[in-house]
Design a protein around this nucleic acid. Structure first.
Length: 612
RNA sequence: GGGGCGGUAGCUCAAUUGGUUAGAGUACCGGACUGUCGAUCCGGUGGUUGCGGGUUCGAGUCCCGUCCGCCUCGCCA
């Protein structure tokens, strides 16, 4: 082995001395071996062939030429095609004309020997072609080629780093990584379970965990003190761009803590993540109550990178003869709210605002009344004629200036909140508010003081907004213990000790302080209409555990997939998962789910009732 | 369960009002080229227009059904 001027690569193997991303001009003159895939090749005649060799780490140009490469090597080099796997050995040389686009662009490797490790079949997807990305279907079917793309390799790298940072950080502040079962008892969380039949217990079933919630609480009772795990969770619900049936949580729980302790630990984690991955400094997180978030942003996970706040104008609207407004205000919990879009009249054409009416219809609203603010404190266009006598008050309330557009929502509180909350985000995109150079890149906040219970009129009962083990906020414990389930408004006003971390309008983590006292837990079940028997049948093991000196405890779970989406700057959850499912829950590469032999079902005592 | 968009060469796309032999780029194959780096130039192979049915003299195009993918409402504490 010749002496080398530079440090041996940690990725060196029998097939390579370095990766394709690490050679620099300092390596000039060294004998090296590289292994990877042919990313691109350029023939310059019979005597000169350039090949860009790619591995996980990057690209390096390797050169076959008739003066420096043996004839048979040059011949072999000229036959290389995209995605062949090869290993080459040669001398690092400074390029005559450097390529500033590549970190390795100052050098090339002059090939003295080449080994074709594996010729490729015709690839259905070319990792070197980033401009014409194949369909989602093609990418998922040929995932091994899709993942070869440098963009995907980078995301895998980010995801790995998030996991590594999590382990390092939580270890450093005393967390124990503990594994919890994948074969579980079906628990009372809101989503549908994936079920697994038990061969040894005919007719009985395991469920895959929707989260390790109960186990981590039991670990606290068990004296674990601080538990942490990166773990898969399973929910059999319809998918979205940010939802998969199996997803990964960074899950943790802490003993002898208040809300503040958990939130401080988690902020530290977020800060470290953003610093280490993106070199972004995360400031101290502001807090917002659930009520404020819903009132002002129409959503429990507001994106604070732009304004467009919802403003209650019910009192002004009441003084109009506009039936849309007055009619809405006659409804129970009727309200009229407005969004001021600065400079909107230049961008939001009639066509666009007509589209808003269609848009809000999907959320149950009737439409979006619109007006524009013009010079002289006047309104023009849309519903202006109904508002003219009130223009001054409205403009003052909205802080509006000429050129602004005002969008209205008039209906019940929940419809206005939902529809304007969604519309606010759409308007921000249409106005390109996030593309402005002055726009903040990151918006972090905690949303706190969630209601513990929500009344569901259809089933005439309360639902736990978080889960039934969430403790009431310390300030509300008294009111909670005294609450009468028949007094809906009182029950709905009780605030929990829960907290959600929100980044750029996406919930990336949520948790709560849990109930550790039996009488409090019983009261929750009572309010939820869960009988003693039902509670015992569903989670007696947790209730049993809580009898034996349970410490005050609380925790949080971060959605790893969504974290990586933000850190990698992608808008689709499939891109941050190596082997994701389609919207119908299929894995196109494995071709599953798929039928199984009848014998396999017999062994499990299962008979399908599916007629198809 | 509902709404929307899409499926044409290995890949990405085009194809006028329903009308000639369904085209282009790229990949691949062959040729030219000694400094390229999105190489260039010349030539070539490559098609069950997702699938099934219908209307029509004639269907990639229109109609019905169906499958698949994506976005979304409901759903997902």
């Amino acid at each position: 082995m010749p002496a080398t001027a530079t440090r041996r690569s940690p990725l060196a193997t029998a097939y390579r001395t370095h990766t394709c991303g690490e050679l620099r001009d300092a390596h000039a003159g060294e004998r090296v071996k590289l292994a990877g895939w042919v990313h691109a090749y350029r023939h310059q005649g019979k005597g000169l062939v350039f090949v860009d060799l790619r591995d996980r780490a990057g690209l390096t140009q390797v050169t076959f030429d008739m003066e420096d490469s043996p004839a048979d090597v040059l011949e072999a080099g000229s036959k290389l095609r995209q995605e062949d796997a090869v290993s080459v050995e040669g001398i690092v040389r400074i390029k005559e004309s450097p390529n500033p686009k590549l970190p390795t662009g100052k050098i090339e490797v002059v090939v003295e020997s080449v080994e074709v490790l594996a010729k490729t079949a015709p690839p259905p997807l070319l990792p070197s072609d980033d401009d014409t990305l194949p369909s989602e279907e093609g990418r998922l079917t040929n995932r091994y080629l899709d993942l070869r793309r440098p963009a995907m390799q980078r995301i895998l790298q980010v995801r790995h780093e998030v996991g590594a940072i999590a382990r390092e950080y939580f270890h450093s502040i005393g967390f124990l990584e503990v594994e919890t079962p994948i074969l579980c008892k079906s628990t009372p969380e809101g989503a549908l379970d994936f079920l697994v039949p038990s061969r040894m217990n005919p007719g009985q079933w395991y469920a895959l965990p929707q989260s390790p919630q109960l186990f981590k609480q039991i670990l606290m009772v068990a004296g674990c003190d601080r538990y942490f795990q990166i773990t898969k969770c399973f929910r059999d619900e319809d998918l979205r761009a940010d939802r998969q049936p199996e997803f990964t949580q960074i899950d943790l729980e802490m003993s002898f803590v208040t809300r503040e302790d958990v939130m401080r630990a988690m902020e530290g984690f977020a800060r470290k993540l953003w610093k280490n991955v993106l070199d972004v400094d995360v400031p101290e997180l502001r807090r917002m109550t659930y009520r404020e978030a819903m009132d002002t942003y129409g959503i429990d996970r507001p994106d604070l990178r732009y304004g467009l706040e919802l403003v209650d104008v019910s009192d002004i609207a009441r003084r109009t003869d506009f039936k849309v407004f007055t009619g809405a205000l006659e409804k129970p919990r009727g309200v009229v709210k407005a969004i001021r879009v600065p400079g909107g009249s230049h961008v939001l054409t009639r066509k666009i605002t007509d589209g808003y009416t269609e848009f809000v219809k999907t959320f149950g609203a009737g439409g979006v009344p619109v007006t524009k603010v013009v010079e002289g404190g006047k309104l023009e266009g849309g519903v202006a004629k109904f508002l003219e006598p009130l223009a001054t008050d409205l403009i003052a309330r909205m802080g509006a200036a000429p050129g602004d557009t005002i969008l209205f929502g008039a209906d019940t509180y929940s419809v206005v909140t939902k529809s304007l909350g969604e519309l606010r985000q759409k308007v921000a995109r249409d106005m390109k508010l996030l593309d402005a150079p002055s726009a903040p890149k990151w918006s972090f906040l905690w949303v706190v003081d969630f209601p513990m219970f929500e009344w569901d009129a259809e089933t005439s009962r309360f639902f736990a907004m978080h889960h039934p083990f969430t403790a009431p906020s310390p300030e509300d414990v008294g009111r909670f213990m005294a609450a009468d389930p028949r007094e809906h408004d009182t029950v709905e006003s009780i605030v929990s000790a829960g907290y959600d971390m929100v980044v750029n309008g996406s919930e990336i983590g949520g948790g709560s302080i849990r109930i550790h006292q039996q009488d409090v837990q019983k009261k929750v079940f009572h309010l939820l209409g869960i009988s003693e028997e039902e509670a015992q049948a569903k989670f007696s093991f947790l209730l049993e555990a809580l009898r034996f000196g349970a410490p005050p405890h609380g925790g949080i779970a971060f959605g790893l997939d969504r974290l990586v989406m933000h850190l990698a700057g992608v808008d689709n959850i499939r891109d941050v998962i190596a082997f994701p499912k389609t919207q119908t829950g299929a894995d196109l590469m494995c071709d599953c789910p798929s039928p199984v032999d009848k014998a396999q079902l017999d062994e499990l005592y299962i008979k399908s009732t599916f007629a198809g």
